[in-house]
Write a protein that binds this DNA or RNA. Structure first.
Lengths: 193, 193
DNA sequence: GCACTTTGGTACCGAACGGTACTGAAGTGC
DNA sequence: GCACTTCAGTACCGTTCGGTACCAAAGTGC
């Protein structure tokens, strides 16, 4: 009923995600966003609500797309395999494009000013959730005997997440895929829970 | 020669640093800055030039103050001691205040939009310099026989810096001092160059 | 005391911010 | 074809952004 929209909402969301990825929540202006999405501001507001909700949707898309490695990694049969897959995925995703190196969930809103607090809190929650899922996976590895009984899943998960976040910062600083993978390998070399 | 200024320029710079630390370069507005500094905008411009130069000065103060641990750590007698001191300093500084957890050089301008590109590049350069100094320190350790001949100083330095950056992200996400120190200990446990 | 320099405060600048009323066209179901 | 709904675009809203012209007051060196 009524006139159908002329733009593809998924494609528009993909473009918005790229802009947020590169410029962060506050750094991405509505002009940047709508320009990249190929639509006007009223169309954006009609389709997504406002900038904050657009960011929320873009983060969902990010989680299901570029950051889906984080979920897939949990399915590896061993804890060591999980850690390897996670860091390998972080390296790949943070160096996917020259236009937006780094990780959206890290550089989207790391500092928190008044306007970016909702985005900041959203990203903090997302990163914490990812850490919690990794903790549970490592706990399962302990229960299954894959990790030694005295291994500390929380500690291990926090360590791996920290390295992944550090890789995102290094990527934002210009390090390339191979250099980052070397870092990941170094971090895993010390894998003796 | 003229009327002396009524405010302490060091104290004003300290306040500005705190604001940049908490809110990042773009997130810190001139109102935020001058409000915290206790001066008016024209006074700020007369004393510092503009926002970007104020940020540059605030970063210098940060390097000589809260981040001075990075330089002091290099003076430790062994490479392992250097790594320990560096990560311990990162943990301490990123949890100094509840108002601005994290590291100014990481969250000051991680994503890069048009307006924040100068600040972004400045911080990238600063982080790279810190990494280079660590590389040189580790190379010296190899030369001195403190590290094994086949150790890779560049790789080790990048790894330690990556963990430090990851700690900064975790601190921004709310992790406390003890949890971060546990992460640092885990990262160092794998220290077998 | 006096000429001079520099201060701090008010009031303002154009531009860009996030967000919206309104309009005319385009398509839908009946 | 016709009433209705939803679209896209223009033009605009008030606010805030970084930055500045202007000026009276305050202090300095002589």
């Amino acid at each position: 009923m009524g006139r159908p929209r002329e733009f593809d909402i998924d494609e528009a969301l993909e473009r918005a995600m790229q802009v947020f990825w590169e410029r962060g929540y506050e750094g991405a202006t509505l002009s940047d966003l709508t320009g990249a999405m190929g639509i006007t501001k009223p169309s954006m507001y009609a389709a997504f609500g406002n900038k904050e909700q657009l960011f929320r949707r873009a983060l969902e898309r990010y989680a299901e797309g570029p950051a889906s490695y984080a979920t897939r990694a949990l399915e590896e049969p061993t804890a060591r395999g999980v850690a390897e897959a996670l860091l390998r995925g972080a390296v790949r995703t943070t160096t996917l494009s020259e236009g937006h190196p780094g990780c959206l969930t890290v550089q989207g809103a790391l500092a928190s000013s008044d306007g970016s607090r909702p985005a900041h809190d959203l990203l903090v929650g997302w990163r914490n959730d990812a850490g919690l899922r990794l903790e549970e996976r490592f706990q399962r590895a302990v229960d299954e005997g894959d990790l030694p009984r005295d291994a500390d899943p929380v500690r291990l998960a926090r360590y791996i997440m920290t390295v992944a976040f550090g890789i995102a910062v290094q990527a934002a600083g210009g390090l390339g895929h191979d250099e980052l993978q070397e870092i990941a390998d170094t971090a895993l070399r010390s894998w003796q829970p």
